[in-house]
């Protein structure tokens, strides 16, 4: 379980998160939705242990996130793979650090994502690199999977491949997947829980099906409504 308790974080004058409280539990796919700069990436970085809260606590299974890095598979928005790496070299490197690495799953996902082991990270398209990044986190049986903007700047077909691979790789009941994106369309039917965040605050959160039932609206429409409402308060 991941817990945020009154978490605030600022970067210089910019307030990234403003006393955020939330929980993520195993067996769920959660979507964190919000416009650019809403604080989505900061949430991911706090869980990955590469940002620290100014106030409040972030706990992973009751511990400091940095002590639990073994349990987290983190896909940052940024391209974080060495440009000279082949996909295979990246896989071999990463596999030495995580006991949950599964070569069988890696081999299975390669053709599924139309990837080749010999691809060089610095020489492939953005879409292919996005898929490589995804493959490298899905090949782990990590309890927590963080996907930060996995679709940004990616063509439609590749987005579908990515969404398919997430479903294929998802292990029900055991894994918590958190996907942050400002493009809800792609994962409307993928997420079970949703958190709408804007200006560092949670504007709305809950069960996706429940929200559809109550409001007779899609998540995209709900987001528009929530954020329009949120902006009026300023």
């Amino acid at each position: 379980m991941i817990e945020f308790r009154n978490v605030s974080k600022r970067f210089g004058p910019v307030v990234a998160l403003n006393s955020v409280n939330m929980e993520f539990s195993a067996g769920n796919i959660t979507g964190i939705f919000g416009p650019n700069g809403a604080g989505k990436s900061t949430i991911m970085k706090l869980i990955a242990g590469i940002n620290y809260p100014d106030q409040g606590d972030v706990k992973l299974d009751g511990e400091n996130p940095r002590a639990k890095r073994q349990s987290v598979a983190y896909l940052p928005e940024i391209d974080h793979l060495y440009p000279w790496w082949t996909l295979r070299q990246a896989a071999d490197f990463i596999s030495t650090f995580y006991s949950d690495w599964d070569y069988g799953r890696y081999k299975e996902l390669l053709p599924f994502l139309n990837l080749d082991e010999q691809m060089i990270m610095g020489k492939i398209s953005k879409g292919q690199r996005a898929k490589c990044k995804l493959l490298l986190v899905l090949a782990r049986k990590a309890p927590y999977l963080l996907l930060d903007e996995p679709f940004s700047g990616i063509d439609l077909l590749t987005r579908e491949e990515i969404a398919d691979a997430v479903i294929k790789g998802y292990r029900e009941g055991e894994q918590a997947i958190i996907i942050s994106t400002h493009e809800i369309d792609e994962i409307e039917s993928l997420v079970e829980k949703v958190v709408f965040i804007d200006q560092g605050r949670i504007q709305l959160s809950g069960d996706a099906e429940q929200l559809r039932m109550e409001r007779n609206k899609s998540l995209v429409e709900i987001m528009k409504e929530v954020f329009r409402h949120g902006n009026q308060q300023i």
Binding site: A48, Y74, H80, F97
Partner: peptide, 13 residues
Amino acid sequence: SNNTIYMMMSLPV
């Protein structure tokens, strides 16, 4: 400069 720091910092070492 390569952003690989994201990889390094998140490794469990």
